[in-house]
Each structure stands twice: as structure tokens, then as C-alpha cells.
Design a protein around this nucleic acid. Sequence first.
DNA 1: CCGATCGTGCTCGTTTCCGATCGAAACGAT
DNA 2: ATCGTTTCGATCGGAAACGAGCACGATCGG
Lengths: 253, 253
Amino acid sequence: MLPEARKRKIVELVSTHDGQSVSELADELDYSKATIRRDLRALAEEGLIERSHGGALPATSVASERSYGEREVKNLEAKRAIAARAVEEIADTEVVFFDAGTTTTEVARRVPSDLLAVTNSPQLAVELGERVEEVKLTGGTLRSRTRALVGPTAESFMERTNFDLLFLGTNGLDVEAGLTTPNENEARMKELMVEKANRVVLVCDGSKVGERSFVQFAELDDVDHLITDAALPKRLAETLDAAGVRVTEEDTA
Amino acid sequence: MLPEARKRKIVELVSTHDGQSVSELADELDYSKATIRRDLRALAEEGLIERSHGGALPATSVASERSYGEREVKNLEAKRAIAARAVEEIADTEVVFFDAGTTTTEVARRVPSDLLAVTNSPQLAVELGERVEEVKLTGGTLRSRTRALVGPTAESFMERTNFDLLFLGTNGLDVEAGLTTPNENEARMKELMVEKANRVVLVCDGSKVGERSFVQFAELDDVDHLITDAALPKRLAETLDAAGVRVTEEDTA
DNA sequence: CCGATCGTGCTCGTTTCCGATCGAAACGAT
DNA sequence: ATCGTTTCGATCGGAAACGAGCACGATCGG
């Protein structure tokens, strides 16, 4: 592992775990404690973490967010693990739709190049354009909060098209409320995605499980395959099983 | 392999693999480590990657999200001067279309917030979304070279809509060939933009003047106002004047 | 045909990295 | 407060990586 990569990893581990000991880091990264200490000292000087006896804590200032931009993404490790598993679903499909969202972005970063990608996220489109032969965008109005395209133009695009596979995100996944999201326009788009996709893969990190948001856009049995990092509550697991939903719980450890 | 192609490949490898060592790159690309190191140094200076002892990591800053080509914008000073002048045209308009392109991007960075912006560039849409209340995207297929949206979906969007003002870019501006661009699909889109816009402002730095590209998409007299940094050749200036085109030559000094 | 220029690989002396060791400092329990 | 344990920083040496400079060959323009 490159020294700088190791330092980035340390910052990430310290930040996500709310502090890590020197031993834990040495163990995890497979470097000597001496090296870990050197790294911690350097990172503390840069203000990216705070040093304490025996280990390090996340920096309190905002400065850390600036230099390592991806920090804004919650549960990044979980999302990456989910994404790594999700791309395996692509085999033998041609037309794949990517819902806007951070988890689906991680999926997009791992896709093979020989497919036709469609998305309602301009950012995702640009990223996909660097990897994939053909990328299509739905068009429509840009919703500022999520950077997703919505509205009549986007919806009419959806009505004219069909997909082999959909990578779908959600804000809430609940046994009673089903799949939910805060915005009506986005909910309508997601509804159409589900309707027009042959196979629906829901990528969903643990923070969404058991949550209910404002608008429901799908039932649990609309999903063909759920990929998550969380151990699902028993009742949800049972309901999904009864609905014939395949569930993959990806270890993040 | 061309040196420049090799560098692009390096950026791609480093970015997709979350970091690569000098040895890996030398091995993969079949060049000596010395050459790889030279490339890495140059790329690090451009900010496209970050150097680390033994290899390189993907750049972390926001700047890195820009694609490889966009980094080296030619005539940036000229384009900024043109853009600064161009935004003055917006007064009392509501619906403004931004053609994809580097000069129009500079315009977009200077727009006031109280308008409805429409564009066929996903990158521009994201930038506009940070400044402007409402942003719409045409949708369509992403052309990889220019990152512009083209094709039937994009065209049918254009056919349904109308604009007060268009900021248009071009590859060639010639007294005989008119306005030209290398790609047929993009030419068709530009044609529609011109048709649907009430007022056409052509933003065009000096490198385009006198150039002819493959496909013509407009005549000189389709333009209402040309903003450039170049002193136009006499014959072109006369023809524009005869066609009733307002011309603004913006000093870059 | 010749000289200039550029890209590339090689050599060599220098810098950086990393694990090990050891005395000093900090910690926690009594 | 004291003692045993853990952690710390400084130092060292070997290995790897580095930059600078030079040489060779290809390309280009005159």
C-alpha cells in the first residue's frame, strides 16, 4: 500500500469509527506501530485528525472535510462494499438504469464498459461517460438538493423507455411503509423506474433500514434483489422472504 | 503509444484503481519507471493526480472531478473576458439556453440567480444548479468528446421548447462557411437552438475565427450579437455588419 | 544531409520509508 | 504517591524510491 493511501485510510477509519487506537490501526493496515505513529503525527499536524495517547480521534474542525472531499458521504465503506457486490448483477444485461444517489454512484464507478447506461443524475452521467460507451440522460428539471432530474420531461422520457436492470436507491426501507423518499417528484420518477425495469436491484446501506420517509414509491415485493450491509430486523427479513425478494448482506468488516 | 495518450491512461488507471504504484504502471504500460515518474510529476503539477512515494493516488480536490481534457482550457483569459461581457446581455430575460462548451461554461459561472437556465451539457447543469433557481436539461445521449447531449431525445426536447436568449458556441466562424462544428448530431442540436431562441449571442474566442469545420449549422445572419476577443478580418467584419450582426470586441489585456 | 529537438532509458548519488530497539514519559490501579 | 504497564519519540540501518544528468535514437525542418 502506498504511504499516502495508508494515511487516507487512517483518516477514514478514525473518522468513521469515532477514534481508533494505534494497535487497531497497525493491526488493520498491517504496518508496525512505529509507522502508524509517524502517520498519526503527520496527519495531526495537517489537522486531519487529533492525536491522543494511544490513538487518534476525528478532527473537530471543518478543515478535515475540505481536503478529503469524500468525507461528506456517510457510510462510505458500506456503500462501496454494497456497490462491489452490486456490479456482479450486471452480467448479461445491456440497458442499465442508475438512480441518482451516493450508493448508486459507487456502483457506477465500478461498471464494465460494454453497456448502455441511463440515468437521471447529471453527475452520474459525467462519471459514466468516462467509463461507458453510451450514456443517456433523462432530461428534465434539476432538483437542487439531490441533483436528480425530475418533472414532466423526465417522466415522459421514462414512459418511452424500458430497461433490463435498475440500480435503485431509497431513503427509507420499512416493513410497513415499503420504499419511501421525501420528495413527490422524485418518488414519481422512482415509481416509473421500477415500472420500466425488468429487474430491480435495491442498494441500501444500513442507515435506511427501518426508516420511513414522506412518500411511498414502491412496495417491498417490487424489489427483485436487495443488497445491503445491515443485518435486517427479523420481521423485515421474513416479509422480504415471503415476497420472494433475494437478499444479500455484504460484510463491511 | 503517444506520450499524451500514456498520461491519460495513467490518470485513468490511478483513478479507477484508487492508486497505483510506479512499478505497476511501468509494468502495465511497458515503459521504464523513469518515464512513469516523469509523467506522474507532470500530472501532479496539473492537479490530475496526487503523488505519493512509490506511486500516485487519485486527486482529492473538487477540481479533479473535471475531466481530463477540460483541465487545459485554451485561451482561458480570453474566454473569461468574453463571458464577463456576455452576461450583460441577460438583463430582462427569463429563459436562457446555454450551449455546451468551455466559453459558455465561463458565462454560466457569472449568471445572476433569477432566471430559468436550460442546457444540453450535464456538467454545465451541475454548475448552474449551484447558482440558479431552476435548471433544465435536454436529456439525450452523451457525446463523449464534448460532453454534450445529442440525439432524438435531445432534439424532441428542443422542438417542444422556446427560449428568450441563447449563448452559443462554435468551432468555426468563417465568412463563407458560416458557423460550423465537426459533429453532425451536435450541428443538428445547435440548429434547433438557433431556431428556438429569440436572441442569439455567439461567444467565440479568436482561435475559431476563420476556421471551417465539417458541418454548417447556421448562417452568419442567424446571429444577433457576436462577442469575441479577436480583431476580425476586414471582410468578415464587413459581412457581419451588412447582415446586421452586432459585434463586440472585448479587450483581453 | 545535417543540426536541433524531443522522448526515453540508464546510472548514480541522495532522499524517503519503515521496522526494530531503547530510554523516557504517560497512564491506571492500588 | 507509587509501581508496573503501556505508549511515546528518537535513533539507526537496510531497502526501496527518487531526481538529476547523460546518452542514444527518432523525428522534424532547413
